Amino acid sequence: MVSTTKIDNASHAGQIVSRSPRQIAWMRFKRNKVGMVAAAISVTVILLSIFAPLVCKVLGINPDDLNLDVLDTAGVPNLPYGGISLDHPLGLTPGTGRDLLANLLYGSRISFMVAILTTSLTLFIGLVVGIVGGYFRGRVDDYVGRFTDFLLAFPAFFMIVALSEPMVARIQDAGIAQGNGARIIFLIFFLSFFGWPGFSRLVRSQVLSLRERDFVTAAQAMGASRRRIIFKELMPNLWAPVIVVVSLSLPGYLAAEAVFSFLGIGIQAPATTWGILLDNSRRFVTVYPNFFLITAGSLVLVVLAFNLVGDALRDALDPRSER
């Protein structure tokens, strides 16, 4: 594969060089300054979440340390700017006096875990179902399509709200997990269950188009097996929409976890997630708005960054884009 440096040198020399689709997409993505900044923010947030214990140790902060002595009678930190200082970069949380930055970092670990696992499961199921329906067509496609339509007809949000308590109780009674572990399993399973039909429709449409291409027809004429056609011919050509869907689904599920935790049907205290922090902040929004603004602003920044990365990837991978 020709490296980017060699391509640039050859371009300056006036030579005509070939570029792979991956190189073209990367060059188009690099020209999108907003996408590059958003990608840097997204990678930084993920790394901070993964290495939260190390970051907190370096900064000398701990999410479990209480600072009750600096709280007034209303539970608000009785310090300038809510306790924001070198010791506590984002201040202290009202009610408990814990370090807000440490709670955001540790809370993001659970939020990202739910979002990443849900996205992975959604993509896996949607990819399999979409390829099966689009490649085999006929009755198989009809049965799969009707089942997908059936799931799309359900109001997913209200189904999750209604089934939360009984399903969590069933998971606990079965001995699979207890407490927040059962709630995490419930969220991942049901968000994936109602999330894959839309992605399968996208994959199906792509496979229906790819199935009629010359390279697939040539592989069939040469006697290639269905397994080889699916894994060697179709799947490598589906990576572009998969990447875009990943970049857009991840922030969506991140926000969904925060919403359900905020509503009290997701992760519960004493665990910490961004949804729980938002729920706690609303009680102090009038007397201590910093807590709400910092927590909500962090969630908005991360979701916006991932969405901008998804838009940039879509533009970079779309040959008809003018960017």
Rank of each mutant, 00 (worst) to 15 (best):
M1T: 04
S3I: 13
H12T: 14
R19W: 07
A25E: 13
K33D: 13
K33H: 15
G35T: 08
M36D: 13
S42A: 15
T44S: 13
A52P: 00
L54F: 10
L54E: 15
V55M: 05
C56A: 00
P63R: 03
G83Y: 02
D99Q: 03
D99E: 03
S108I: 03
S120G: 06
F124S: 11
I125P: 00
G126T: 03
I131Y: 08
V132S: 05
F136G: 09
R139Q: 02
D141F: 00
V144Q: 10
L151Q: 04
L151E: 04
A153L: 11
F154M: 05
F157H: 02
V161Q: 09
L163Y: 10
S164P: 01
D173L: 08
G175P: 07
G181I: 08
L187R: 04
I188S: 09
F194K: 02
F194C: 03
P197W: 01
S205T: 08
V207H: 02
S209D: 02
S209F: 00
F215P: 05
V216W: 14
A221G: 14
G223E: 14
I229V: 06
M235T: 02
S247W: 09
S247D: 12
L248W: 03
P251L: 08
P251V: 09
G264A: 00
I265V: 07
I267V: 01
Q268Y: 02
A269D: 06
T295L: 01
S298Y: 08
L299I: 15
V300K: 09
V303Q: 12
L304T: 11
L308P: 12
A312F: 14
S321K: 00
